[in-house]
């Protein structure tokens, strides 16, 4: 089971290192698209997440969600989040 805070923290750090954006701009409702994340990055992020958390993450997880909040809700619906 993943923990929401850990996922949020990791995603924020990941996006900071990938895009060079300020952590403060990466809010839960900021569209990934506006952060300069394209579809390739989205799949890369799924791969890194899978490795980091040791849980299978679907390749389309980030692609099909527009924001961190939506992604968290999606994980919760799939029963991956405690």
């Amino acid at each position: 089971m993943l923990n929401e805070t850990a996922v949020r923290t990791w995603i924020t750090e990941f996006l900071v290192s990938l895009t060079g954006a300020e952590a403060a701009t990466i809010t839960g409702d900021a569209p990934f698209y506006n952060l300069g994340i394209d579809s390739v990055d989205a799949v890369v992020m799924a791969g890194a997440m899978e490795e980091h958390f040791g849980t299978e993450i679907e390749a389309t997880l980030v692609l099909r969600n527009a924001t961190i909040d939506e992604l968290i809700a999606d994980l919760r619906e799939s029963g991956l989040l405690s």
Binding site: V40, V43, A46, A48, E50, E51, A59, T60, L63
Partner: peptide, 13 residues
């Protein structure tokens, strides 16, 4: 998508 995901995973590892 799956292939790219696995490549990214290997790189991250």
């Amino acid at each position: 998508l799956e292939v790219h995901k696995r490549a990214a995973k290997e790189y991250y590892r």
